[in-house]
C-alpha cells in the first residue's frame, strides 16, 4: 500500500468513528445504549457509502470499488429473498404442499393444484444453466419465458400502443369552430385561446403522420414525401428536447435527494 493511500484510509476511518460517536450521542428516541449505537452506526455507514460512490467523480478508487461490490452482492440477495417469500411462499406453496405451508406459516389453499408443479420444475431446469453440461436443458424454461412475454405483449401492444394511439389522434382540426369571422375577430396568441387549441391539434395530427413517414422504409424520401419526413424529424427533435429536459430534471432531483440526506439526516445542518 502506498503511503498516501494509507493516510487517506486512516483519515476516513477516524472520521467514520467520530461520526459514529457523535450520532450515537445525539440519537433521538432510543430505549438503550445498544439501540443508540446501532442507529449511529447505520446513519454513518449510509453516509459513508454515499460519499464512497461520489468519490468516483474524482477518480476510480478503492472506496468506490468497495461500495460498488457491496451493492452488487446485497441487491442480488435482496431480490432473491423477496422473490422467495412473496412468490414461492405466497403463491406456490399454498397450491402444492401442506407441509411446506406449515414450515413457513402460510395458509394452505385446501387443495393440491398439480399443474403448479410445472413452474418449479421449469425453474429448476433454468438453474441447470449454472452447471456446465446441463446448460441446454435450461432452454426449456427460457422458451417458456420468451413464449409468455411474446404472448402477453402481442395483443396488448397492438391494442394500447397501436389501435388506441390511432383513435387518440382523431382530433377535430377546427376547435370550437363558429366560422371564419369569429375566428379572425377573436384571433389571439393566448395560451387558452382558440388559435392555440387549433394549432395544438394540427401539430399533433401532422406530427404523428410525418413522424411515421420518417420511420417509413419502403419508399425513398424524396419530393413531398421527403419534406414530410423532414418535418417529422423536427417534431421528433422537439420530443427529444422535452425528454432531455425531463431527464436533466430527474437526475438533479436524485442529487438533491442525496445531498438532503447528507446534510439533514447525517450532518443535521439544515435549519429549515
Amino acid at each position: 500500500m502506498r503511503k498516501s493511500t494509507m493516510i487517506v484510509t486512516l483519515v476516513v476511518v477516524l472520521l467514520f468513528i467520530a461520526s459514529w460517536i457523535f450520532k450515537t450521542m445525539t440519537a433521538p428516541e432510543v430505549d438503550s445504549t445498544f439501540d443508540a449505537l446501532t442507529q449511529g452506526f447505520l446513519v454513518t455507514f449510509a453516509a459513508f457509502l454515499t460519499l464512497a460512490i461520489m468519490s468516483f467523480l474524482y477518480q476510480d478508487n478503492p472506496f468506490y470499488k468497495f461500495a460498488e461490490h457491496l451493492y452488487v452482492g446485497v441487491s442480488a440477495a435482496y431480490a432473491m429473498t423477496l422473490g422467495f417469500w412473496s412468490t414461492l411462499v405466497g403463491n406456490l406453496f399454498p397450491r402444492v404442499s401442506e407441509t411446506l405451508c406449515g414450515w413457513f406459516q402460510v395458509e394452505f389453499s385446501g387443495q393440491h393444484d398439480w399443474q403448479f408443479l410445472i413452474p418449479p420444475i421449469l425453474g429448476i431446469l433454468l438453474l441447470m444453466r449454472l452447471s456446465p453440461k446441463g446448460g441446454w436443458i435450461s432452454r426449456w424454461a427460457l422458451a417458456f419465458i420468451v413464449g409468455t412475454t411474446a404472448g402477453l405483449n402481442l395483443p396488448r401492444f397492438l391494442r394500447s400502443d397501436f389501435i388506441e394511439q390511432i383513435s387518440g389522434t382523431f382530433l377535430p382540426l377546427l376547435v370550437d369552430w363558429e366560422g371564419f369571422g369569429h375566428f379572425f375577430s377573436n384571433l389571439s396568441l393566448s395560451a387558452s385561446g382558440q388559435f392555440v387549441a387549433i394549432l395544438s391539434n394540427f401539430v399533433i395530427v401532422s406530427g404523428v403522420i410525418c413522424g411515421l413517414i420518417y420511420f417509413f422504409f419502403s419508399k425513398e424520401h424524396k419530393g413531398a414525401f421527403g419534406s414530410a419526413s423532414r418535418y417529422g424529424i423536427w417534431i421528433l427533435m422537439i420530443t427529444f428536447g422535452a425528454s432531455f429536459g425531463y431527464t436533466v430534471m430527474g437526475r438533479i432531483s436524485l442529487l438533491v435527494g442525496r445531498l438532503t440526506f447528507l446534510m439533514d439526516d447525517w450532518l443535521g445542518i439544515i435549519s429549515g
Binding site: 394511439q165 369552430w177 417509413f216
Partner: peptide, 28 residues
C-alpha cells in the same frame, strides 16, 4: 420491416380519415 411499414400505412390512412370526420362533424 415491410410488414411493419404496412401497419404504418394503415395508421396514417386511418388518422387522416378519422381527423377529417372529426373536423367536419364538430365544425359544421
Amino acid at each position: 420491416l415491410k410488414g411493419q411499414d404496412l401497419g404504418k400505412v394503415v395508421a396514417m390512412v386511418a388518422i387522416v380519415l378519422g381527423t377529417l370526420a372529426a373536423t367536419l362533424a364538430s365544425a359544421w
